[in-house]
């Protein structure tokens, strides 16, 4: 999942060409704007067949690859239980 998230970030976060990111890179500081964060979120929903609940739609959720991974895992496991 981690690699897939990195791929989606590179494809959709609208970061400047050549930027390298780690799990902890702050994507907003790296150049992600709110418009791109929306595209990133839609791509994540499609790739993992999930839906981010309203309370997770904030800047903290999409701040870094590791934050995204935590959010996706949390939603996926909640879906399995339900």
């Amino acid at each position: 999942m981690n690699q897939q998230i990195h791929d989606i970030i590179l494809a959709h976060a609208g970061l400047p060409a050549g930027v390298e990111i780690t799990d902890e890179t702050d994507l907003y500081r790296a150049g992600m704007k709110s418009f791109a964060s929306v595209q990133l979120m839609l791509a994540l929903e499609e790739a993992f067949d999930i839906e981010f609940p309203e309370e997770m739609l904030n800047r903290a959720t999409f701040r870094s690859a590791s934050a995204i991974e935590r959010a996706v895992s949390q939603i996926s496991s909640a879906t399995l239980v339900a």
Binding site: S34, F35, V38, L42, F52, L57
Partner: peptide
Amino acid sequence: AGAGQLLLVQRT
């Protein structure tokens, strides 16, 4: 225009 983008992802 910005609000239209946000509405694509707002969840109710």
